[in-house]
Design a protein around this nucleic acid. Structure first.
Lengths: 297, 297
DNA sequence: CGCTTGTAATACTCTGTGGGTATCAGGCTG
DNA sequence: CAGCCTGATACCCACAGAGTATTACAAGCG
């Protein structure tokens, strides 16, 4: 009667490998078991999921549909497990995720003052992490920077902040009050789309081909090291620039770049009084969290 | 390793009945089985879900958390099953739900012209149905009227429309060009919060106590019968009023009532190219779907 | 106080299903 | 045609889920 999550996991493995033998290996079960379980699943759903024509295993349309559906369902199930066990040990904790640079103490203070019985924890996220903490149940809400994958999330826009260029202190543009994107056209842009999405914006806006393979940065600190060393320049949201300020790096406001949007995100399948209350609080004083951009005259 | 949906279903039953025996009866299984399965689930999650102190079964905080989590997960699983089987028989159908009165042919035509291979179906929803069709997998997207329960949904606002009063043709206010809410204060308001939410707004705005138990309406047609019979008046979104127009009922624009918001909604855990394309189309010509309100001078 | 009633847990059995190994059935390829 | 790759089939075992019978325990009552 019910869908069987184990079978769904098996199905996803086969769909990802498109190969029963290797999928079985990855699942640490024997191949015949997998064949049989997939057949049972197909009978159960009354839908053919794979076309097996000896030599190639392909997804049917129904299979593609199921793959798209099964992954978020499995993720939800795992998150459920984590959230329940979390509630079971520490009583009534509310976990807020945040990207570095975002100051979240104000809304948390407001929440705690209204609910003294609530223990609020914060968890620092990275760029790749910022939505994962919600999906896997580590956090109840998370302050995120767009763009993100919004699948399964409810997003509440809070405020935007200007982006600034981070330049070596002795850079030719360091003295300027404001610059435009065009001024950076000749610079070597430290590019790392995964870790710092703002980069992608600039890179595509400038249509810059990578002149040499960009080093891979895992953190803002690393990137600023490279900037300070004169290996290139980078663009950061204002609050990030403020947070990681150092004497050998100057920040210059960029006038003509899209601002970075900051949002609060949470799992859209959840109906939690605390989440909505926190969202309301964040929306109220959201614009006050970060100092206003200073790129005006 | 995985969460077991069957056990979740069992758990929800016990949580709803707060009584193992009756829950077992509802599930058509024996009570000892249920006791053991819940215990296994508790061991699995490493969390106590119920406090059983002989004579009363109560949820623990972890249990309450699980109840809130389990229901949407089970609903998702059921919807997944339905959507996959739907794809399996009719190839590539896209199902659009709509509330009566909403004209949805324009965006559907636009979608089909871009994807001739796609079969688009429409499904008429009722007030109570309008989000259910999404949750249970009967529709991919649905045109809805606010307010709705947004849990698990992504909502895209399209346009608003004015609300008009439906009056018997010989009513004292029937000749007026526009009226205000206050003009209706002495009328008998046909009240049915579940079926027609606009009513709730008016009822609360007017602070009207029900003078006699309101008859229960299952459709707009029934309600208009009562209006025509002179048993009261009602308020409808403009497009609904236009759709169900009849000679013995006059519509008068109301100047000072909040307009009804019309949105497109879909399951937020889904990532479907067609859904997003349709949403974009609907957003583009969304304001053109319904004739503009005529309550201006 | 002991009996009854209501409720969940325990003990035991049976069956269905998930997992394993061995083997078969088709296509390719050399 | 032999050998190989891949998935399906056949058959067996173990365990989990379902059932019945019974126990344990608390509360109410004559």
């Amino acid at each position: 009667m019910d869908v069987d999550l184990r079978k769904l996991r098996y199905f996803v493995a086969v769909a990802e490998h498109l190969h029963f033998g290797r999928a079985a290996e990855a699942l640490h079960i024997a191949q015949p078991v997998l064949s049989r379980q997939i057949k049972v699943l197909e009978d159960d759903l009354k839908a053919l999921l794979f076309v097996r024509d000896k030599r190639a295993t392909e997804l049917t349309p129904a299979g593609a549909q199921l793959l798209a559906e099964a992954r978020p369902l499995l993720a939800n199930a795992a998150a459920l497990r984590r959230r329940v066990t979390r509630v079971a040990r520490g009583p009534a904790t509310f976990v807020v995720g945040f990207m570095p640079g975002l100051i979240v103490t104000a809304p948390i203070r407001a929440l705690v003052s209204r609910h003294p019985e609530l223990t609020v924890e914060v968890i620092r996220t990275t760029w790749t992490d910022q939505t994962d903490v919600i999906h896997d149940g580590r956090a109840d809400v998370s302050f995120v920077r767009l763009p993100i994958d919004q699948q399964g999330l409810t997003i509440q826009q809070l405020h935007t902040e200007a982006r600034v260029a981070a330049l070596p202190a002795d850079h030719r543009l360091a003295g300027k009050g404001t610059i435009s994107i065009a001024d950076l056209a000749d610079e070597h842009l430290l590019q790392d789309p995964n870790a710092v999405p703002e980069w992608r914006d600039v890179a595509t806006e400038l249509r810059t081909r990578t002149r040499r393979p960009a080093p891979f940065f895992h953190s803002v600190e690393e990137k600023l090291e490279h900037v300070a060393a004169g290996h290139g320049v980078c663009v950061l949201p204002l609050s990030v620039a403020m947070f990681y300020s150092r004497v050998d790096i100057t920040h210059v406001a960029i006038t003509d770049i899209a601002p970075n949007q900051i949002c609060l995100a949470w799992d859209s399948t959840r109906r939690s009084r605390v989440i909505h209350e926190f969202a309301a609080i964040a929306a109220e004083d959201g614009t006050a969290i970060v100092p206003p951009p200073t790129n005006g005259p």
